[in-house]
Amino acid sequence: MRSLLPIIKGKKPRHPLLARLLHWVYAPAVLAGILSGFYLTRPFPSQGFSKVESAQKTHFVAQYLLICSYLARIYQAYFTKDYQEILPGFNDMAGLPRFLQYELFLSQKKPKYKKYNPGQKILFTGLGLLIPLQIITGLALYKPNSLQKTVVLAGGLGPLRKWHYLAGVAVFALSAGHIYFACTHDPNKLKSIFTGYE
């Protein structure tokens, strides 16, 4: 009955508490990873860190938060089976042209979706695939001695660093797109990632 109360009040549940909590761990971790990571590539003072040491500290704290929250989110997805809402299926792919037509202002009719639109699904799945790549290459950069087998697979630390950087570039682009759409598309949904209800 208690869980029904908000619904009776007209609130539609959208994100369970755990998913929201985890979102607000991995989202700042990814943002901190982007900021400190790109400073580490080109350490110029204008980029927000006074020295490499502090950027590294930020990056390494963020990396632990990201690894833990990512694994927890995968665990949650597996047990609650909510990955079905996130992974794009056949219907999403078939509906992609209609979605793109609307988003590219070629059609006025806003398509309706059960939870996430095909764009969001592709974006979240993309992030879900890039983060493990980021974690694996990042861990091998972090502990190149103990994880040298991963370095062998990448063909050396140089190529491995390049993959970590390129994955970082892709994570940056997807995160920027996600934040833009999250902030401009539907304030109700934006609210829902804090409150749980739209």
Binding site: T41, L157, R161, K162, Y165
Partner: peptide, 18 residues
């Protein structure tokens, strides 16, 4: 390095070319 020289050139850039 195993990637030397193709995989870590240019030598005066931080990251290897794509």
């Amino acid at each position: 390095n195993p990637e030397f020289p193709d995989g870590n050139a240019p030598f005066f850039e931080h990251l290897p070319d794509v």
